[in-house]
Each structure stands twice: as structure tokens, then as C-alpha cells.
């Protein structure tokens, strides 16, 4: 444990309060991980918890997500649904090795994610959003966001942060910049900051289910890292309701079945 702390402190040159937080967060993860894996489904009976998306926003909150098309819930037998899942999974880009379990954490919604929305087409490319009609601020902001994203993928969240902070200066309406800032903070172990940035990203997105799903899924990751597993599950469910192909959520949910390992996304 102490080696972990020492290693972390070496990798991340951060100041004292953040360091302490990182240590606490790591402790939380390790602690959560050493607990016995909790079953995903509590009981076959529907729980009475509300299906509203968990968020730390203040009231009144206006949900921008388009409602998923209503679907009859099929009779509850595990096998046919699992078969359905498998088919759905084959349609998504990346196959999970184990069947993705159903997201019936809140079965009272009466909605099964896979049956709702087919996986959305990948809208992840930022450069593709630059058209001749895009304002120069937005275009510059998107390009910088892309650079930040690449830095993040290359494993340099600190550098990504510096780059991404510029994107919101140039164009504060660019929600993707906020999303990747959230991701950078997440990678640096700053889960609370990450959640704050996700709130902002969510409020600046309008009608983009692919990205909203990304927001919810990353929110789930943060909650999980903070040990708030209920909220994490709810967020993943929310993500998958919008986009059953959301990789973060599907991976995370699959991992919840296995003994937990630190996420690599």
C-alpha cells in the first residue's frame, strides 16, 4: 500500500491536498476491491428505487436526453434474454468475452436497454464535426480537443489537461472539451473534479445521445472509483439506455461481474 502511495506520488507531481485525496481515493478503490464482489442483481423482485438518472445537479433539472422508444418487457426468463444479448453484442464493435449481463439494476423502469436502442453509430470523431459552416472558434477548439484526446490516449493526462483547458477558453460552448477534461481528471485520480466537469459537459450537450452516454458512463467510472457502487451502476445503466453500444459502460458492467481490477479505459 505504501509503495503504491509512493509510486503514485512519484508519477503525479501534485500538491499536498490533491496528493492526500489521491491516497484516499486509492484506498477506497483498494478497499472496495478487496470486498467480496457484490451480486449485480439483488433479487428477482423489482426494486422500488426511482429510475431517474443520478446526478448532482440542483433542481429543476431538465433532461435533455431523448426518451428511448417504449418497448414491451418480454417475459422474464434468463436464457432467451441472454441469447438476445449475445446477438446485440455481436453487433457492437468490440465483443466482450463474457455475455454482458442485463442492466436490470432498476427493473421497475420496465425498460430493457438492449431492446430499446440499437447501438449508436460512433460519433466520437471530433475533427469530423468541423464543417465549412463551423465557426473558427469552434474549429480551433475541436482541434485542440482532438489533440488533448490523443495525449490522453498516449497516457499523458497532465499534458492533456493543459491542452484541454485552452479549448474552453476559445469556445466555452464546446462540450467535448469538458468531457475530455473530465476524463483527464479521472485518469489523474481526481474523481470529484471529473464529476464536476461531467456536469458541465452534460449541460452543454444538447441532443447528442452518443456523447451523453459517454458522459454517463464516465460518471459511472468515477462513482465506482469513489466506492459509490449504487450510483455507478445507475450511471452505467443510464448510458446503456441511450447507447447500448457504449463501450465504457459495457466493459464496466462486465467487469463488475468479475473480481474487480482497475479500469484500463
Amino acid at each position: 500500500m505504501t509503495e503504491l502511495i509512493a509510486l503514485t506520488m512519484k508519477i503525479f507531481p501534485i500538491n499536498l491536498p490533491e496528493r492526500m485525496f489521491l491516497v484516499l481515493a486509492l484506498t477506497a478503490i483498494v478497499g472496495a476491491g478487496s470486498c467480496a464482489p457484490r451480486p449485480l442483481y439483488r433479487t428477482p423482485l423489482p426494486s422500488t428505487t426511482a429510475a431517474s438518472p443520478s446526478s448532482s445537479a440542483s433542481s429543476p433539472k431538465i433532461s435533455p436526453a431523448p426518451p428511448p422508444p417504449p418497448v414491451q418487457e418480454p417475459a422474464r426468463t434468463p436464457f432467451p434474454q441472454e441469447a438476445k444479448i449475445r446477438e446485440q453484442n455481436l453487433k457492437t464493435k468490440d465483443l466482450t468475452t463474457s455475455p454482458a449481463p442485463k442492466e436490470t439494476v432498476k427493473p421497475s423502469t420496465g425498460v430493457t436497454p438492449e431492446a430499446n436502442t440499437a447501438p449508436l453509430p460512433d460519433d466520437g470523431s471530433l475533427l469530423a464535426k468541423i464543417t465549412p459552416g463551423t465557426s473558427p472558434q469552434r474549429a480551433a477548439s475541436l482541434r485542440l480537443t482532438e489533440e488533448g484526446k490523443k495525449l490522453l490516449e498516449a497516457g499523458d493526462p497532465a499534458k492533456a489537461l493543459s491542452r484541454l483547458e485552452k479549448t474552453i477558453v476559445i469556445d466555452s460552448t464546446n462540450p467535448y472539451g469538458y468531457f475530455y477534461l473530465a476524463k483527464s481528471h479521472y485518469r489523474l485520480g481526481r474523481y470529484k473534479e471529473s464529476l464536476s466537469f461531467l456536469d458541465v459537459a452534460e449541460s452543454r450537450l444538447s441532443g447528442e445521445p452518443f456523447w451523453l452516454a459517454e458522459v454517463y458512463a464516465l460518471r459511472g467510472e468515477n462513482f465506482r472509483a469513489l466506492g459509490m457502487l449504487d450510483k455507478a451502476e445507475a450511471s452505467y445503466a443510464q448510458a446503456l439506455r441511450l447507447n447500448s453500444g457504449n463501450r465504457t459502460a459495457t466493459d464496466a458492467v462486465a467487469r463488475l461481474q468479475e473480481p474487480s481490477q482497475p479500469t484500463s479505459r
Binding site: S56, I62, L161, F197, D199, V200
Partner: peptide
């Protein structure tokens, strides 16, 4: 390094 910190305290509406 001091980062930009944000906190949503009010709805955008």
C-alpha cells in the same frame, strides 16, 4: 499546477 476547477451550482437555464 493549479487546474481550472468547475462546479455546477446553477442550472444553465
Amino acid at each position: 499546477k493549479r487546474d481550472v476547477r468547475v462546479e455546477k451550482v446553477l442550472t444553465p437555464q
